[in-house]
Computed example of a mutant assay.
Amino acid sequence: MNAAVPPLPLADRASVLPAIRKCLAEERLVPFLGAGIAALSAPVVPTDYDALAAALGKRVALPKRARGNPWASAQYIESSRHRSSLDALLREIFAAPVAPGPLHRFLAGLHLPLIVDSWYDGAMRAAMEDVLDWGEIQGITRAGIGEDRWFRAYDRKGAETPVVNAGGWATLLYKPHGAIAPVGNFLLADSDYVEVLTEIDIQNPIPDAVKLRRQGRGFLFLGCRFHDQLLRTYARQIMKRSRGPHFVVMGDTELTRNEIRFLRGQGITPIGGSLADFVSELVA
């Protein structure tokens, strides 16, 4: 690690868990789930971007420049084949249902105003099955749809519904990069993000219901990485105009220089210890 970027001190799990539980109970924290949460269950789908890139590489012969990079791999497949081919591969890769884990069920039972889930599996949706008043907004690709829309909304049964209905839901599940369920929306190729990244600073790709529900709240990042600029940009813009406090549990992963700068710049407190241990104690 570069000495010019001093490491962040890690908060002790036992010292911050009571405050986190209190903030969740008072609806003052927004859970922000990453791919690492899927790894806590039996890994039937990729549980990080490296594994997703490898899964694409097993199915398509990729040029050297794209190997190991999920966004470049997806872009090559879209460009050399067709968008429908990429979507079909992603639906195949994420076809196996990820069973909701203790964290998903714990969060579903809290009836929080907002839950952000940035991975493509459907475990959080499945955990909400018995919750009566909720719905979901997913980011969608604008490639070839001929519509001026950044996202679509789905009710608890999976039927598409006008986005304006999200304002009345007790709980909003926000999947900014899409998801396998209910219909298989995916943002992954570079082309998916070109327009998003040109307008995300002015918040157009962020749903109004998300902007409203993040106000006065902090974020709890679980199973997330911020080693890529795209991931940092999304997290920063989704957090925008929130109040804090913010926490992140990244497990035993060594942080990159950019991750340290990001966490420090956003005022996010990193918590020491493994993600599995944190989740186990949180839901106990």
Rank of each mutant, 00 (worst) to 15 (best):
P182M: 09
A3D: 09
V16N: 12
R91Q: 12
K175M: 06
T141M: 12
I77H: 03
V249I: 15
L56T: 03
E195L: 14
F219T: 09
S73T: 02
D130N: 09
E254Q: 12
L263Q: 05
H82W: 09
H104M: 11
L263P: 10
K211E: 14
I180V: 10
I271P: 02
D121G: 04
G244T: 02
G272P: 00
D117L: 04
V163D: 10
E136C: 01
G223Q: 06
V248W: 02
V30Y: 01
M239R: 05
D277T: 15
P176H: 07
D228Y: 13
E26Y: 05
M239N: 04
H104E: 09
G216K: 15
F219S: 10
R65Y: 14
S79E: 08
T141E: 13
Q138N: 06
V163R: 01
P245E: 15
A61C: 02
F219R: 04
G184N: 04
G167Q: 09
A74Q: 04
L222Q: 04
L8K: 00
A25P: 03
I260M: 09
G184C: 09
G144M: 06
I77M: 07
A11G: 08
G34Q: 10
R65D: 13
W134N: 11
R13G: 11
S118A: 13
P46W: 02
S73V: 04
F94C: 11
Q237P: 03
Q215S: 12
T171P: 07
G167M: 05
D208K: 00
N185F: 07
P6N: 08
G216C: 14
F221M: 03
L107M: 07
V283Q: 11
L114I: 12
P270K: 13
P70L: 11
P162W: 05
E147I: 01
R213F: 14
K175T: 02
P270L: 15
R217Y: 04
L230V: 11
P102G: 09
D277M: 15
E195F: 14
R149H: 07
I77W: 00
E281D: 15
I37V: 12
D117N: 15
L112F: 06
A95R: 12
G36T: 11
G216N: 15
G184K: 03
G36L: 13
D190V: 06
T141V: 14
R156P: 07
V183A: 05
I20L: 01
R225S: 10
I271A: 13
P100I: 10
P176R: 07
G216E: 10
A11M: 10
